[in-house]
C-alpha cells in the first residue's frame, strides 16, 4: 500500500505540475496536427475515408508525442529543478513514482489525441463516424496504454543520460514511420517489418482503423481482435522490461553518483 500511495501522490503531483503550466500541451499537439494537415493537403480533395485515415493517424501521433515528451522530461525536469536526488532517496522504488506520472500522462494523451481528431474533423468538415464506436474506444484506449508502456521503457533509459531531450526529439519521427501511423507498413522496405511488428502501437493503429473504417482493406491478417491481442502482449512485455530496467537504472545511478549532472 505505501507503494500505491507513492503512485497516487506522484499522479497528483504530475497533475498539479501540468495544471500550473498547461501550455506544454501545445508542443505535443502541434506536430501531429500539422502532420495530419500536411497529409490531407497532399490529397487535395480527400474523401471522407481519407480524412478519417489521416485523422486517426494524427490522433495516434498526438498520443505518442505526449507520451514521448512526458517520458523524456520526466526525469530531465527533476534534474533542472534539483529534485532528482530527493526522488531517488525516497523509500519507494522509482518505478512506482514514474508509474503515477505515466498514468497522468496517459490521461492527458487521451485529451491530446481527441483534440487532434476533433480539430481536424472541424477543419475538414467531416463528422467522426466510426464503424463501431465501442470497439474504436477500446482500441483507442489500449493503444494509448501501449504507448504509455513504450514511453516507460524509454524513460528508464532516459534516466541514465543527460541527453534525454535530444533522444526525445529524435524518437518522434521513427515511431511515426515504424508504426505506419499515416500509411500502411507494407510500403516500408521488407526488412523493416519485424521492427514495425515489435512496436505495440503498430497493432494499435491497425485495430483503430479496423474499428473506425467500414471498408478497411490494408489491415493485418490478424484482424481486430488479433491486433488487440498482439498489442496487449507487447505492452505487457514493455512493462516487464521497464520494471527490470528501473531497478538496474536505480542501482547504476546510485553507484555512479552522477544523477544530478545536467
Amino acid at each position: 500500500m505505501p507503494r500505491l500511495r507513492a503512485t497516487v501522490a506522484s499522479f497528483r503531483h504530475q497533475a498539479a505540475m501540468f495544471l500550473a503550466e498547461p501550455q506544454w500541451l501545445i508542443p505535443n499537439i502541434i506536430a501531429p496536427f500539422v502532420l495530419a494537415m500536411v497529409v490531407l493537403m497532399l490529397y487535395r480533395e480527400p474523401s471522407p475515408e481519407a480524412v478519417l485515415y489521416a485523422v486517426l493517424g494524427g490522433g495516434m501521433m498526438g498520443m505518442w508525442g505526449n507520451t514521448l515528451y512526458a517520458s523524456g522530461f520526466s526525469i530531465q525536469s527533476d534534474r533542472w529543478w534539483g529534485t532528482v536526488d530527493a526522488i531517488f532517496s525516497a523509500p519507494s522504488p522509482l518505478i512506482w513514482i514514474i508509474g503515477g506520472r505515466t498514468i497522468w500522462n496517459a490521461f492527458v494523451g487521451i485529451v491530446n489525441g481527441l483534440f487532434v481528431l476533433v480539430a481536424a474533423m472541424i477543419i475538414f468538415q467531416t463528422p467522426l463516424e466510426v464503424a463501431d464506436f465501442w470497439l474504436f474506444m477500446l482500441a483507442f484506449v489500449l493503444t494509448l496504454l501501449s504507448l504509455a508502456a513504450l514511453g516507460m521503457l524509454f524513460s528508464a533509459a532516459f534516466v541514465l543520460t543527460r541527453s534525454a531531450q535530444v533522444l526525445t526529439n529524435g524518437l518522434e519521427f521513427p515511431i511515426y514511420v515504424g508504426t505506419g501511423s499515416m500509411f500502411p507498413i507494407f510500403l516500408l522496405p521488407y526488412w523493416t517489418h519485424p521492427l514495425s511488428y515489435s512496436l505495440a502501437p503498430t497493432w494499435g493503429i491497425d485495430a483503430i482503423r479496423y474499428a473506425a473504417l467500414p471498408a478497411y482493406a490494408d489491415g493485418f491478417a490478424a484482424g481486430y481482435w488479433g491486433d488487440i491481442l498482439y498489442m496487449s502482449i507487447l505492452a505487457l512485455f514493455y512493462v516487464t522490461i521497464s520494471i527490470w530496467l528501473y531497478k538496474a537504472v536505480d542501482h547504476r545511478a546510485r553507484k555512479t553518483a552522477n544523477l544530478m549532472r545536467y
Partner: peptide, 27 residues
C-alpha cells in the same frame, strides 16, 4: 551533449523525416 549523440542526431533526424513524407506521398 555526448558527441556520439550529436552524430546520431545529425545522421538520424533528417532520414526519418524524409522517410515519413516520402511514404505518405507514395500512399
Amino acid at each position: 551533449l555526448n558527441p556520439a549523440m550529436w552524430i546520431m542526431q545529425l545522421f538520424g533526424m533528417s532520414l526519418f523525416q524524409i522517410a515519413f513524407f516520402v511514404y505518405v506521398a507514395k500512399f
